Structure formats: C-alpha cells, structure tokens
Simulated assay, not measured.
Amino acid sequence: MTNTLNWGIISTAHINRRLIPPIKKSGRSTLVGVASRGPAKAQAYAAEWGIPRAFGSYQELLDSPDINAVYIPLPNNMHHEWAIKAAQAGKHILCEKPLALSVAEVDDMAQAAQDNNVVLLEAFQYRMHPQIAALQKTLGEGLIGEVKHITTRFSFVLEDETNIRLIKELGGGSLWDLGCYNVSFCQAVAQSDPVEVFAWQKTTAAGVEISLSGQLRYENGIVAHVHCGFDRSFRMSATIEGTTGDIDLSSPFLPDVDVNPSGFSHIVDRVETRIDTPVKDPYLCEVEALEAAALDGVPAPYTLAHSRGNIATIVALYQSAEQGKPVAVE
C-alpha cells in the first residue's frame, strides 16, 4: 500500500480554490494534475495554481498511472458517471456533495468502489471537522438532556439564471446545493435518518426549486425543520433544543471558513456559555479523512451509509413538496 495520495482534480470548478491549498499542505498528499474538457483551459488553470500536469480530458487524467486519487467537483448530474469511471480506473475518490441525485446512483457508485477496492467519500467537509465530533460528544453526555427539536437554516441570494445551481437538468435547486447540509446535520444530531418528511417549495418559471422548508420526523421522537433558499440573504445557523437546554451554532456547515468561527453556545435559562472547539481548515479535514481511509484503512467519520440516507431524505423532501403530502423515507 502506497503512503501518499497523488491527486488529480477533475474540472476547473470554482470550489477547487478551497481544496488545492489543503492538498498541497498535507504531508501525505501531492497534487499531480488537473483536467478540463480541453488542453488550453487545463494548461492555463495548472499554470495559475502551480499544478504540475494538465490533462485535456477527464478520461486522460483517469488513465494516468501517476494519479491514485481524484477530486470530483463536477455538476451534480455528472457525479455518478465520473465516480464510477474513477473507481474503475482504480482511483480513490473525494466527490463533491451531493454525492448523487438518487439512491440508485449512490448504490451504483458504492458498488463500483467496492468492486475496485477504492475509497469513495462524499465531500461534506464539516462532518470531518472537530466541531461535529465535539457536538456529538456534548449531546451524548446529556448536556441539554434529551434532544427534542432541531432547526437549521442555510440561504443566500442567487439570481444568475445561467448558474449551474439554477439549471434543473444539472441537478440544480437550493435543497441539492444548500439543504443537503441541513439534512446531513440533522442526521448527525439525530444519529439516524428520518422515517417521514413533509415539505413546501418555491420554484422558478423553469421549474427549478429556489426555496424549500421541510419537516423531518425521526423514529426516536426528534422533529427537525430545515430551511434553505436562493431567494433571501445569507444565513447559516442551527439550533438544537433539549429537555434541559439548547445549543446554538453560528457556523454549522462552514466552521473555520473565512469569517465563520467554529464552536457553539450552550443556553440554559437564557444564560449562554460558549464552548470552543479546535480551529482547523475543514477542507484539510476531508483531505486527511480520505488519506486515513485510503492509506491506513481507517473508516471515514462520514460513510456511504450516511450519504445514502442523506440522498434518500432529499429525494423524499422533493417528492413531498411536489405531492403536497407526507412521504416516507426509503
């Protein structure tokens, strides 16, 4: 087993700017190349970011024997195809969220990873960050008693109709782009997936969802509310209500990114106590999680079972919003 991940990035997506520095910083990773749909763009991007090799197609990068891990930040509708191709090429995979657009796609991708003995990890960076582990430990110790209710919000204004987030055929929609964090966070707190959901949505003339509010009911009695949208100002927050107190998070999904601090507040009888957590780049956390899984055989804290449950919940929320009735999560 090799002791280094030699990375290739499939596409020149804007989100790459978050992952390139951590890959270069990590002592167990090397950034080898980047691919685009043509050589000129790949070469220009490689020169801009100091990446040694440029590949003129995604498949050319996958065919390189010098690369054993890939990052896939492609549009949502392309994750399934290229994750499977990467697995078949023997590459470990960090794939952007949402991992896929259906449970069947998740199952296909997981099977391809298993068949080819590679690691497939969904890039929910905050699930690898110390903040979520500290939160789960705090809840497990009973600091706020029994968890009863979770509320999450994630939004920002997006009006550019050419943005891939607003193109339905590419897997656009605020729930796929933002709300996937909300649903995943509730999963982390409830330690399970919901059994039933109900949702309301607002769509554009083109049929793209730009705002969704949903209720999630868990078998253990927890009820969660998720709110996401491209139609209102930036907001990111989470509140967990228990029988003896509450916990508030101002940066549940982007801890230690830009001006968003990690840590959370414990509130009892309107008295607030700050609980700090280790400061760390969450994108480095996901790089290290793939390293540990691929190089050491250490299971990632966010598994494909988690990914499958998250996608199943999102699909059910969309079905509920379209049908106007509660939907069971399958």
Rank of each mutant, 00 (worst) to 15 (best):
F185P: 00
V183T: 08
S174F: 11
A188I: 07
T162I: 11
I167P: 02
R153M: 14
S184P: 00
S174N: 07
G173Y: 02
V183K: 01
K148W: 07
K168D: 02
G171D: 07
G179K: 02
C180Q: 06
G171E: 05
G179S: 09
G173I: 06
A188L: 11
W176Y: 13
E161N: 11
G172P: 02
L175K: 03
C186F: 03
A188D: 04
K168R: 15
L178M: 11
F154I: 12
F185L: 06
C180D: 05
E146Y: 02
Y181R: 11
E146G: 08
T152L: 09
R153I: 13
C186M: 05
K168M: 06
T162Q: 09
I164P: 15
I150V: 15
G179Q: 05
V147Q: 00
S174I: 10
C180H: 08
D160N: 15
G179R: 03
D177E: 10
L158V: 06
F156P: 03
R153N: 13
R153V: 12
R165D: 05
T152Q: 13
R165E: 07
C186Q: 02
I167D: 04
G172T: 00
D177N: 12
L158A: 11
E169Y: 13
S174G: 06
V147E: 01
E146V: 13
C186V: 06
C186H: 03
D177A: 13
D160E: 13
S184K: 04
R153W: 14
L175M: 12
R153G: 14
C180W: 03
D177M: 12
L170W: 09
L170K: 15
K148E: 14
I150C: 05
R165N: 10
E159N: 10
